[in-house]
């Protein structure tokens, strides 16, 4: 049943010094639908592709606002993300209560990193099966952090995780130099384009399957869904009918 003797649990090193259970947990992240995050000098943006189980079901939750100054996007096991997000909400409130200070993003990221690490060193626990992008603004400005099941946390300028996210990352790497100076709207467009690049050929971004989260200096984190993002989709991806875009809108 097992591929080898060393992948039964997360407390066994392989002869090469790898921990297979942790690596398998990383695979769970790749099963989740793609999420993208970017920061500029003034803003942090998250964009996510939502899946629905079937035609008539609702779409999954991919972006979770945590505190007024930041939120997360997840790829992988949503229930693990819920545990982590509840923990993050508690910690964020504790910081506001104790110090009257919005929790620094580096701090909260490192706390969930430490929690995830424990799961990789003790028998009877399993690593979290979810990857997170943590985006928002604190006293030091806008930030984007990536969290992995191994407990690795890194501050990024831009990042994409989840199924087919390599395509998104390729887009991000190609446009890396533009992000820092981007305006709020430009940044949102970059995030949507990166998201689009990782879609399968026959898929489109629609107001149903796309979520956005935006935070800025002096702008609280807010999630945008449904009709709220129609314009952004419209202006980012000028449809083949391009020129008659205006006319199309009248029709609907």
């Amino acid at each position: 049943m097992f591929r080898n003797n060393y992948d039964n649990d997360s407390v066994t090193f392989s002869p090469q010094g790898r921990i297979f259970q942790v690596e398998y947990a990383q695979e769970a992240v790749k099963q989740g639908s793609v999420v993208v995050g970017i920061v500029s000098k003034t803003h942090a943006v998250l964009a996510a592709l939502k899946r629905n189980a079937e035609e008539l079901s609702s779409y999954q939750k991919k972006i979770i606002p945590i505190d007024t100054h930041y939120g997360i996007a997840l790829a992988g096991l949503a229930s693990d993300a819920r545990v982590l997000s509840n923990f993050m909400k508690q910690q964020s409130l504790a910081s506001r209560l104790t110090y009257d200070r919005p929790i620094p993003l580096s701090e909260i990221t490192s706390r969930i990193g430490d929690r995830a690490q424990t799961n990789t060193q003790h028998y009877g626990k399993r690593p979290y099966g979810v990857g997170l992008l943590i985006a928002g603004v604190d006293q030091k400005g806008p930030h984007l952090f990536e969290f992995q099941p191994s407990g690795v946390t890194q501050e990024m300028v831009a990042c994409g995780i989840g199924a087919r996210s390599q395509m998104a990352r390729t887009y991000l790497e190609r446009n890396l130099d533009e992000f820092e100076g981007s305006s709020r709207e430009e940044l949102i467009k970059h995030a949507l384009r990166a998201l689009k690049d990782s879609l399968a050929q026959d898929k489109e971004l629609t107001i149903e399957n796309t979520s956005l989260g935006v935070a800025g200096v002096d702008e609280n984190f807010k999630m945008y869904e449904g009709q709220e993002i129609a314009n952004w989709l419209e202006t980012t991806f000028e449809r083949p009918e391009g020129g008659e875009g205006e006319g199309m809108e009248v029709d609907s």
Partner: peptide
């Protein structure tokens, strides 16, 4: 959103 207004620092 169509009028992409730059948000300065």
């Amino acid at each position: 959103t169509t009028t992409s207004k730059p948000t300065g620092p």
